[in-house]
Simulated scan of single mutants.
Amino acid sequence: MTDRLTIATWNINSVRLRLPIVEKFILEQAPDVLCLQETKCPDANFPEAAFRKLGYPHIAINGQKGYHGVATISRRPLANIEKRGFCDKGDARHIAVDVAFSDSPLRVHNFYVPAGGDEPDAAINPKFGHKLDFMAEMKAWLNGAETERPAVLVGDLNVAPYEHDVWSHKALLKIVSHTPVETELLEAIRSHGGWIDAMRRFVPMEEKLYTWWSYRARDWAAADKGRRLDHVWVSPPLADRLKAMRVLRAARGWDKPSDHAPVIAVFEE
């Protein structure tokens, strides 16, 4: 019997503020697992009851007041929950869980990488230095045993790595999220661990692919000055089970939206 698993990732930019559109997304798309970033909510205040009511009783949270925060909610049981710290900051930026899939557990990493501030120079912008240090720790960890098993890495990685992951490669080369030092480091994390870019498996490199559109644009859809900041990576043992991917662009236009759109990946065994 075929097992089909859908995993969605979405930077929600405050889970309590945007709970109505999260509920709308769940009712329309019904992913098996939903990974949220930038929940901006301490664990005690996370709206667990709302998710349980929607049929998602399994919830793993790593939150903090007002900033950052990640949460993985699921219709399937979650096991081996891990909250990894980075750069000795105490920030809530990662949570990993095992989800039952076919005959083996599937490791799901949920990340929210630091944005890095506005100036792409670590010497004068500590936020950018923090981002690079955070990514260096990711590179040192996310290989070997982490990629020798079925695993998915999702989240807002805050880097648009390829030329057509941004609306203008030339205009954004000196803009944080698309500078060469960031794009090369993200690619090093991915390639060092053997991770496969699930989104680009379905969208050719020469085609534009975005998941984020700034709030600053008067008409975000017409301007379409997007970036692909949200990602889905799969480990080599899972590659053949990856069957589909899509960005739900329409969600960027919902009432009181996040500036990110959800990404949905489908796996079958």
Rank of each mutant, 00 (worst) to 15 (best):
G116W: 03
L173F: 02
L186T: 05
R249C: 01
G194I: 08
W195H: 12
D133I: 00
H231P: 08
G226Y: 05
S74P: 04
A250N: 15
R149P: 05
P180K: 03
C35A: 14
L34H: 08
P120T: 04
W10L: 04
F25A: 10
R241E: 02
M1F: 11
N80I: 12
G117V: 09
H68I: 00
L185E: 10
F46L: 04
E163P: 01
I61C: 14
A250P: 10
I61L: 13
R52H: 07
S177C: 13
G66T: 14
P161D: 03
Y67M: 01
M205G: 06
F25Q: 11
A100S: 11
R200Y: 02
S168I: 07
V266I: 08
I21K: 00
R84P: 00
I12Q: 05
A30T: 15
N11V: 04
L19H: 12
D240H: 00
R249V: 10
A44S: 11
T39A: 11
S14L: 14
R107I: 13
A50W: 07
S191I: 12
P114I: 00
K256G: 02
Y67H: 12
K243E: 09
D32T: 06
K89L: 12
L248D: 06
L229Y: 04
A222M: 07
H169Y: 09
A123N: 13
R218F: 04
S102R: 10
I59E: 13
H192F: 15
V176W: 05
M1W: 12
L209D: 02
F267S: 04
I12G: 02
T9E: 03
G194H: 12
P20F: 14
L19I: 02
D118E: 13
K83T: 14
F267M: 10
E48V: 15
L142E: 04
D197P: 13
S258Y: 09
T183W: 02
V166A: 03
C41A: 09
G155L: 04
L34V: 06
H130E: 15
R227A: 09
R107Q: 10
E146K: 05
A50K: 09
P42D: 14
P257T: 14
R190S: 07
A115S: 11
G144K: 04
E28Y: 10
L172H: 01
R249A: 12
R75W: 13
G193N: 09
P57F: 13
L173I: 05
H192R: 15
K225T: 05
R107A: 10
H68M: 00
T147Q: 09
F111E: 00
L242S: 02
F51G: 00
G63V: 07
A160F: 01
P120F: 03
P204F: 05
L238Q: 10
L17Q: 13
M205S: 06
H169V: 02
N62P: 08
G194Q: 13
Q29G: 12
E38L: 09
V234T: 08
I196W: 07
R107N: 09
H109A: 14
P236E: 05
W167E: 01
I12V: 15
D121I: 05
L19V: 01
C35I: 09
P262K: 03
R16N: 13
Q37L: 10
R201N: 06
K170D: 12
A50G: 00
I21R: 02
A50F: 01
D165P: 01
R218E: 11
V159E: 07
R190E: 09
K170S: 11
W254D: 09
E137L: 05
A171S: 12
